[in-house]
Design a protein around this nucleic acid. Structure first.
Lengths: 229, 229
DNA sequence: ATACGATTCAAACAATCGTTTGAATCCGGC
DNA sequence: GCCGGATTCAAACGATTGTTTGAATCGTAT
C-alpha cells in the first residue's frame, strides 16, 4: 500500500493473501449476504488467518467495499470509455440511443460472462448491494456511480432532445432497475418458465432480449395513464 | 390462532402484541435489513417482552415471513381480482396489454401510497427481500408469487399472441425488475437528478411514467442486437 | 550473521445474537 | 370465590460475532 520502503517478498506474500481474501469474500458474500457471512468463514475459505482481514483491510466493511471496487471500478470505466468511443466516431452528430444503451450493457454483460472476474456471482452480489440500506453501502455506491450516471444522462439528453430531463431521469432509473434485477439473477421469477433450459452461452441472447425492451421503453411516447376500473 | 377454546380477553391481548410486533418489525427490518435487526431492538420498539417473538411467531424467520404476508397476500389478491374484473368486462375479447399492466401496477401503487399499511417502507423491504439469497426467503417469495405470476403470464400471452412464450417470460422478468427496483426506492440513483423535488403525491405521476415505459418495452418488436464497437 | 519491518499466528477480548426456561401474571368460565 | 389455560416477564443459556493483542515467523538489507 504505502509506496515507501517495502520488501518485495513480503509485499508479494501480502498481495496473494489479499487476493485470496477478496476471492473468498466475493463468493461468500454473494452466497449468504454481507451480515450473514462471518469473517471466520471467509478466512477459513481463503486459507488465511482470521486477523488477516483487519490487518489488510481494516474492517469487514472495508473488505466488502474492496470486493465491490475491484470489479465495479473497471466496469464503469469501460462504460464511459465505450461511450466516448461511440461519440468520437459519430463525429459532430449525437450518438444514437441504441449505441448509448450498448455502452451501458456491454461491459456489464462482459463482466457477467467472465468467470475469472466473478462472473454472474459478482453481479448477484451487486444486485444485493443495490437494495441494502446500510449507510456505508449507499454512500459507497453513490460515489462509484456518480460520474458514470452523469455521463450517460448527458449523452441520452443529446440523443433525445425532445424528452424532458425529469422524464429522462425516471427512465434511466427504470433501466437501471431492470438491468440490475436481471443481472442479479434472483430466481424469484424463475418459475415464470424454465428460463435458460440449458442453452450454452445465453448472455448474448440475454442482451438481444434486454436491449430492445429497454430501448423501446426509453423512446416510448409520453403517455397518459390508462386508469384502471 | 387455534379456533378451539380461547379466552377472548387473552386473545385480544395477544392480538395487539402480535400487531405491535409486526409494525415494529416491519419498520426496523426495512431500515436495517433482516440479519442486522435484532429481536431485542424489535421487542423494545414494540414495547413487549423479548420472548414474545418466539412465543407468538416461533422464530425470527417466521416473524419476517409474517411481516411480508400481511401486506403481500392482500396485494397479490387485489392484482388477480383486478385482472379478473378486466377480463370479465372485456367480454370474449382478450384484455389489452395496458389494462393487464394496470392490474399489476395499481395495487402495488395503492399499497405504496397507504401509510397505514406500511407505505413505501414496506415495498423497500420487499425490494430487499427480492435480492436476498436466504433460502427460506426465496422459497417463501416463490410460493407467494406463483399463482399471480402464472395468472398474468397467461393474460399477457392472450394479449400478445405473436410474442414467443419465452420472450414473454423474459419481458415479464424485466418488468418485475424495473417495478421492484422503482418501488423499493433505493436512492442509489437519486443523484441522477432531484427526483421528486417536493411534488405532493407523485405516486400517480410515477405510474404515469412507469406504465408507458413498461408498456413500450413489453410490446417492443423482436430486435437484433446492435453490437458495439 | 544480525537487525528490522512486514506479515502471520493462536488466543482471548467484550459484546451481542436467537432461543429457552420457569415462575409470575392476567382474565374468563364455573 | 377459585381454577386453568393463555400470556407476559426477568434471567440465563450457549453460541457466535468483529476486533484486538502480543508473540512468533518470514524475508530482506545491512
Amino acid at each position: 500500500m504505502s509506496g515507501r520502503v517495502m520488501p518485495l517478498g513480503a509485499a508479494r506474500g501480502a498481495a496473494v493473501t489479499k487476493d485470496k481474501l477478496l476471492d473468498a469474500a466475493e463468493a461468500l458474500f454473494m452466497e449468504h449476504g454481507f451480515e450473514a457471512t462471518s469473517l471466520r468463514l471467509i478466512t477459513a475459505a481463503a486459507g488465511v488467518n482470521l486477523a488477516a482481514v483487519n490487518y489488510h483491510f481494516g474492517s469487514k466493511e472495508e473488505l466488502f467495499q474492496s470486493v465491490l471496487t475491484r470489479r465495479l471500478d473497471p466496469m464503469n470505466q469501460q462504460r464511459v470509455d465505450l461511450l466516448a468511443d461511440f461519440e468520437r466516431r459519430a463525429a459532430p452528430h449525437p450518438v444514437g440511443c441504441d449505441k448509448i444503451l450498448s455502452a451501458m450493457l456491454i461491459p456489464a454483460l462482459a463482466l457477467a460472462r467472465d468467470p475469472a472476474r466473478g462472473g454472474n456471482n459478482f453481479l448477484r452480489l451487486l444486485g444485493r448491494a443495490y437494495a441494502d440500506p446500510a449507510p456505508f453501502l449507499r454512500q459507497f455506491l453513490s460515489d462509484q456511480y456518480a460520474v458514470m450516471i452523469a455521463r450517460f444522462k448527458a449523452a441520452f439528453g443529446r440523443a433525445l432532445p425532445e424528452l424532458p430531463p425529469r422524464e429522462l431521469s425516471w427512465r434511466l432509473h427504470f433501466i437501471m432497475g431492470a438491468l440490475s434485477y436481471t443481472l442479479a439473477g434472483t430466481d424469484v421469477l424463475k418459475l415464470i418458465e424454465e428460463l435458460r433450459p440449458g442453452e450454452s452461452s445465453d448472455d448474448e441472447r440475454l442482451l438481444q432480449r434486454l436491449a430492445p425492451f429497454l430501448l423501446a421503453g426509453l423512446t416510448a411516447p409520453l403517455g397518459d395513464l390508462p386508469d384502471g376500473a
